[in-house]
């Protein structure tokens, strides 16, 4: 097995008494698209900052591309392209100037920096706006230019912090498609942080759910849902035309069916959990009993449910974990 391209060992960051990142272990292989999922304030950005050497960890090490990010950030930054969540550009310069500036800082020779900038801009669909001042750019255009900015240095790893924030749905789709294509064609490793579950689900090979500074679980979306909901893998909800009376006459009959675990009735919907997929026999059962079935829905567990499940468990914890008031008072004077 190859050496992992990103390796975090026991990474911890404390702000006063608050633990933003708590003993995080994470390994990402080359060419992978990894989704870092978590609610706001979970410590995603802090983790990314530590991977780039922009913040010193309180404990633990972050190794990126074989370099220690804390002691050798320059080598790491040479190989890693980072797109911050609120990317900014020099407003007085045009898009092209902004891009060539970053290109030059990355040591691209003067003779080819312009050609390369044009290439990346064409690819990203901003060729026509190259000579426009970035102050006139929309949020989506800025985000694209940010990606161009990352690509011009030809990175081995791309780190995207909330990349889809503020882009319209069709733009998001294209953006994610492009990222996936890039990763597949050139073997670029992508680390994507987001709180948009569906987007992450679309592109990521592996996801990690990150709450309150801890990585709760990681793995592919399939694997996650299987491990989480192994007790109730198959849930079928059947809608009926009329409301079901509360002491339901057929409930016992239903329980007698093979592999049925649990039956829950709410109004006109019957929810049945079973050990294996027995939807056809369930429908047959209902029809046989002369009930009018209006809809059958087989529930599949997506990231949403996974996410929710974890949040339920963590809500109680995070409330006790609230930031002390002192932090807020202090921030007044820092302005």
């Amino acid at each position: 097995m190859e050496k992992p391209i990103i390796e975090l060992r026991g990474l911890t960051k404390c702000y006063g008494s608050l633990k933003a990142v708590d003993n995080l272990d994470l390994t990402i292989q080359k060419g992978e698209i990894f989704g870092l999922l978590g609610p706001n304030g979970a410590g995603k950005t802090t983790t990314i900052m530590m991977m780039l050497g922009l913040t010193e960890p309180t404990a633990g090490t972050a190794t990126v591309c074989g370099y220690n990010a804390t002691t050798n950030p320059i080598a790491v930054k040479r190989k890693v392209g980072y797109l911050p969540d609120s990317v900014g550009f020099y407003d007085s310069m045009t898009a092209l100037e902004n891009l060539t500036y970053i290109g030059r800082l990355n040591g691209i020779p003067e003779a080819e920096v312009k050609d390369r900038a044009f290439e990346v801009m064409t690819a990203i669909g901003l060729r026509d706006a190259a000579d426009k001042k970035t102050s006139a750019f929309s949020r989506g255009m800025k985000q694209r230019l940010g990606l161009a900015d990352v690509l011009i240095k030809q990175p081995e790893v791309i780190i995207l912090d909330e990349p889809t924030l503020g882009i319209d749905p069709s733009g998001v789709k294209e953006f994610l498609k492009l990222i996936r294509q890039l990763s597949r064609q050139h073997g670029i490793t992508v680390l994507l942080s987001s709180h948009h579950l569906h987007q992450v689900q679309q592109v990521c090979d592996r996801v990690g759910i990150f709450v309150g500074g801890k990585m709760l679980v990681e793995g592919s979306v399939d694997k996650l849902s299987r491990s989480l909901f192994k007790n109730e893998t198959n849930v079928v909800s059947i809608s009926l035309a009329e409301a079901v009376p509360t002491p339901w006459e057929f409930e016992d009959d239903l329980h007698r069916l093979e592999r049925v675990q649990r039956v829950a009735v709410t109004d006109n919907v019957v929810e049945i959990s079973c050990l294996s997929d027995i939807t056809p026999s369930l429908v047959r059962f209902f029809v046989h009993k002369g009930l009018d079935v209006t809809g059958v829905h087989k529930k599949e567990y997506g990231l949403d449910d996974i996410y929710e499940k974890y949040f339920e468990n963590n809500l109680a914890e995070s409330n006790t974990n609230e930031k002390p008031n002192r932090v807020f008072q202090k921030s007044f004077f820092k302005k």
């Binding site: 780039l52 320059i74 080598a75 990317v87 970053i102 800082l105």
Partner: peptide, 14 residues
């Protein structure tokens, strides 16, 4: 404030 500092600091420079 403009967000350019993070972008700049993510480049390989001291």
């Amino acid at each position: 404030n403009a967000g350019t500092l993070t972008r700049l600091m993510a480049q390989p420079l001291y």
